[in-house]
Design a binder for these strands. Structure first.
Lengths: 230, 230
DNA sequence: GAGTACACGTGAAAC
DNA sequence: TGTTTCACGTGTACT
């Protein structure tokens, strides 16, 4: 691709400009017939270039060392494996936070999701299984209303994860329904039931707690109400 | 530090061994009186070295490109700023997951913590504020017991975050107590009350749910019980 | 001695 | 324009 020895080095080599003791530049310039102002300029440029590259390398290596510390890697871990570990770590952390914020922590926007997970049932042919999850503002009667809704639909809760944080709540339930009364189309029943549940929620948010109060504070207050109801 | 042109290059340069067209090595070896078997060996070694270094660079750059994708960086983001962003991202993600798993997600081990956060009160001189947090197995009566305990201690719950996931629960409450009845030493009261609460929990875990059942399944069952109690 | 990893100086390309 | 970034080949040290 590129010549092994460039014209520039060759020239500098012949004129003695590239010897180890660079302090002799001036001397060389005065004693050598080839020495010119241009040569000095070129050498100065090379020196700048050299220095800039040095700083660039230092910058990169500095960041690499920070990464070594963050991953608690030995200072003698070589660059390639270090970077491989960094790639892996970033992937892990991204996945981890995604899972948590997606499935556990309440989001700022309301969500409803109903899934038929019948396929995962352990040979229970008489029941159909749904995964129900929703995210909304918390309110005192929310869970009670939810249980009543499920009861009226003749569904049984198998297990539930619930998170209430800062006045917002995310709930993930696995519910079972008898196949005599329900089929896959019951996903829509559930979805609609939840929807009206959340609508009741937003109404209660509007109407209840008539007295003023900070916005963020009010959110947290509602979490308190929930406890007090229990 | 090191000579600008090494003896090796100088020698190879004079013998013509380092010209761009490396295919002519054999020709050079046969026509040049300096050519020896040693020279060929040395050149082969250099070529191996060259190739190894090429591969090493490729390996490093490959990881850098992966990182570019993970951070959705332009493919023209330079190495240094890319690495700077990686450092920042890793720090953020670590902090984020630490916060969540530390303050929200229930841990596998039981924990009790009571803090006097009086200093943070907004000029409320007549009340003392505590931050109460605990993590344990969930059970149906847990929250009810908790509220009764706080009531008996004449403490009022200001707000609460609650997370129940996979049968374990983490609760963070901020409670207020009248300064006429409580001081900083009430931290101990609270701590002991919580401790007996959790002890009751572990007893109920041992005794209750006498019927068999999978270990993990049982955990989740208890989350269900909690809902049904509400 | 062969293999591996790093820092260096350099040429070239992008602005 | 000079400045900045990259890939390259090389010297050197460690194993």
């Amino acid at each position: 691709m590129q010549p092994e020895i460039s014209d520039q080095i060759f020239y500098a080599f012949l004129t003695g400009g590239l010897c180890a003791s660079s302090t002799s530049t001036t001397v060389t310039s005065s004693s050598d017939p080839f020495a010119t102002v241009y040569e000095d300029k070129a050498l100065a440029s090379l020196r700048n270039h050299k220095e800039a590259e040095r700083k660039r390398r230092a910058r990169i290596n500095s960041h690499l060392n920070k990464l070594r510390k963050l991953l608690s890697c030995n200072s003698k871990t070589d660059k390639s494996t270090l970077l491989a570990k960094v790639v892996q770590r970033v992937k892990e952390l991204k996945q981890q936070t995604l899972e948590i914020t997606d499935e556990t922590i309440p989001s700022e926007t309301d969500e409803i999701s109903v899934l038929n997970i019948e396929d995962c049932s352990r040979g229970d042919d008489r029941r159909i299984i749904f995964k129900v999850s929703f995210c909304c503002e918390d309110r005192p009667e929310l869970l009670k209303d939810l249980m009543e809704t499920l009861k009226s639909l003749q569904m049984e809760t198998l297990f539930a994860d619930m998170t209430t944080v800062g006045g917002r709540t995310r709930n993930v339930l696995v519910v079972a329904a008898d196949k005599e009364h329900h089929g896959v189309q019951s996903v829509n029943f559930l979805q609609n039931a939840l929807k009206s549940l959340l609508e009741r929620s937003s109404k209660s948010v509007m109407v209840g707690h008539g007295g003023g109060g900070g916005e963020e504070r009010l959110k947290r207050r509602r979490a308190l109400d929930h406890i007090i109801m229990v």
